[in-house]
């Protein structure tokens, strides 16, 4: 599973399939403050991420 964090750092590790929201919370990220893209497509955070998937986390918590 590849996870691209808001600061563009990348985490690559073997993981059991998990709901994106749970992954975010395990990373200490409030799901309400980010938008997530699974394999390049924006998805709701209750979608499941498989080990082969890529998750991009986009933070928008500043500036109007």
């Amino acid at each position: 599973m590849k996870i691209i964090l808001p600061d563009r750092k990348t985490i690559e590790e073997e993981r059991e399939p998990a709901v994106i929201k749970d992954i975010l919370e395990s990373l200490g990220i409030n799901p309400a403050s980010v938008i997530v893209a699974k394999n390049g497509n924006i998805v709701p955070d209750d979608v499941i991420l498989e080990n082969a998937d890529e998750l991009k986390i986009i933070s928008f918590a500043h500036g109007g």
């Binding site: 497509n41 924006i42 998805v43 709701p44 955070d45 209750d46 979608v47």
Partner: peptide, 13 residues
């Protein structure tokens, strides 16, 4: 995770 209107993959809930 499908669009309630057209059945395509949903982006938003």
């Amino acid at each position: 995770n499908l669009c309630s209107i057209c059945g395509k993959p949903a982006a938003v809930r």
